[in-house]
Design a protein around this nucleic acid. Structure first.
Lengths: 355, 355
DNA sequence: TTGAAAGCGTTACCAA
DNA sequence: TTGGTAACGCTTTCAA
């Protein structure tokens, strides 16, 4: 669908003629003050060569008559939008809304706006992303473990700054900001070892995602190094509460597990509920750990041991890459792996009375 | 801060010169084909008067050479951005991410993009919203129960289509799409009556929000009509899990309550956990109901009776108002109140064995 | 430091 | 139906 559709928004109804007061332009303002339009433009441009008092006068006057520069016109002449496209696909996992909230605020703070591209799973990626190109966003931030990298890759390499958050590019050379998944997985494995568990299960979300592979590989390796047994390895098929429940049930059916590491918190939360319903005590019978540290993990009912992603740092690093231009189209891509933090809670902590 | 800051994004590094291939323009394409630039524009404009075969030829050629119309230029000349500003402030309550996800997808489907304005609570609203005006968004959709209506009001009335979702305007005449809160509250009250509860507590989120007032007033009124007792009326102070916990604890301390209606699900979920921890059986000792029907409400562990907001319908109605122009600046505002659905789950359903 | 004028890439109006 | 040409409102040379 290349052609416009035309919305009611276009219609200039008859009723609203009276309110049709068009916003003032720089030219009009200039005429009112008796300066050139260029002067007005310069007054609003940091670092432009303009006399301080003239700028002050223009800005004051602008405020009075409620003049605001038209950003669209500015975009056109500068070929710069100050908009970053945020590509997301999974709002069900609470980790993402939390991340997006922090990210959009951080962007706002440096004067960047967030244009949201909520990619539906099955749909035509090309079409959904076409707006990304047409709107000339300055940069693209992809927040999603579950989007194919093929089309994204093209977009990123296509003369546009791009950053992947929480995943790495498999085939393409792209900028990535990511939590050190291996570090986290090893921390969990070590912790299971510390609390004396031996028969360990791992539950993947989407097995093929880079996030999962990094966690899974590091975890399994470390488990082996400790001489512990991998009692089960399950692919939940998706990062969801219900997938977590199902996986836990399956693990119970097999038996012989005394600790489970779920690839992320939302899985783990589902897992804990399923364990409880089956009369299993957490952590006495089975210890449980997750990854991310979403808000729910901290709820007293779950009190889930997890590896906290450094969300603030991730956001800061990403925004920093935008600001210092290190993610500009031609530059060599960087992968920034950030340390997280093991958060030990009750789900792995046997009460001292039981010791 | 009126002046630009300048980001690294601006810098035209030296490295990326080679990738600096500027996108083709309509004029260039026109010259290649040997038609006028106007023709190219028309080929991409639905309903423009252009010969079908000419359009076809242009579109085919455009595809070949990868020409895409520059949306920014189009915005400038049409004074229309196809962007709607989405104002949000509370991503912690899972209801909002779910709503935003559906909304942004629906907008995308009709060719509208979503520019996210994530309003931080304490901060300067004027400044945060200034981008809304500068970017010339075609419409503003406010999704937030907790933002003051004063500044928003100004914005909405200021020559711009505006819709409030999930709240009504108190002082201003604005378009609203909202769940029928009173209907929901009454449904819960009736349900409590049906299951034979008499001493009822109500937990507000933010007491002053329109959402809460509608629910609270209707609920209390209906409770009285049924001859039931309002055993407690608590203002949680915020719509959060922890506020719910605290409220539940308070209610327990007072005693004499056999059913609680929390103003929304996230409160109720916290409430249930707190009740459990205090050895209270839900629903045997105290029945619990919420409002919204967020995903967590359906989790087996909570299995929360709630009043489901018709999110899909809300979104459809809002998008419809944008499309048919009924929310255009000059038109009289409408308040669309939509019916929800009582979802009865275990939190109010005493197992038949206990009957 | 200032002002004039040429873009930026479209859309829309007017003749042809 | 077509092409030419003014806007659209800003930024950015280029002279002054």
């Amino acid at each position: 669908m290349r052609a416009d559709r035309g919305h009611g928004l276009t219609r200039n109804g008859t009723i609203d003629e009276k309110s049709k007061r068009k916003p003032m332009t720089a030219r009009e303002l200039a005429r009112m003050i008796g300066v050139s339009q260029s002067a007005v433009s310069r007054a609003f441009t940091a670092g432009a060569s303009i006399a301080p008092d003239l700028r002050e006068r223009i800005l004051r006057f602008a405020e009075e008559v409620d003049y605001h520069p038209n950003a669209i016109a500015s975009m056109l002449s500068k070929s710069r939008t100050n908009i970053v496209g945020i590509v997301i696909s999974d709002m069900q996992n609470p980790f993402y809304p939390a991340l997006i909230e922090k990210l959009s605020r951080a962007l706002q703070r440096v004067g960047l706006q967030s244009l949201m591209f909520n990619i539906a799973k099955g749909a035509n990626l090309e079409e959904q992303l076409s707006a990304l190109r047409r709107y000339n966003v300055d940069a693209v931030i992809v927040i999603s473990a579950t989007i194919l990298s093929g089309p994204i890759l093209r977009w990123a390499t296509e003369d546009r700054a791009a950053i992947l958050i929480n995943r790495v590019a498999e085939d393409a050379e792209l900028n990535c900001v990511i939590c050190d998944n291996a570090e986290g997985a090893r921390a969990i494995a070590d912790h299971f070892h510390d609390i004396g568990r031996h028969r360990i299960a791992y539950v993947a979300g989407l097995a093929h995602t880079t996030t999962n592979r990094e966690r899974q590989n590091a975890f399994i390796t470390r488990i082996a190094e400790h001489g512990m047994t991998l009692s089960a390895l399950i692919d939940g098929g998706e990062y969801s509460y219900y997938a977590g429940r199902k996986a836990a049930t399956e693990i119970l059916a097999r038996g012989g597990t005394d600790a489970i590491f779920f690839a992320n918190d939302i899985l783990a939360v589902g897992g804990i509920d399923a364990l409880h319903e089956n009369g299993i005590n957490v952590p006495e019978d089975i210890a449980v750990a997750g990854f991310d540290d979403i808000a729910i993990a901290g709820w007293p009912h779950y009190d889930l041991t997890t590896f906290r992603q450094p969300v603030e740092t991730i956001v800061d690093v990403a925004v920093g890459m935008l600001e210092d231009g290190s993610c500009a189209p031609g530059k060599p891509p960087h992968v920034r792996r950030l340390s997280g933090e093991l958060i030990i809670r009750r789900s792995t902590l046997v009460p001292s009375s039981a010791t």
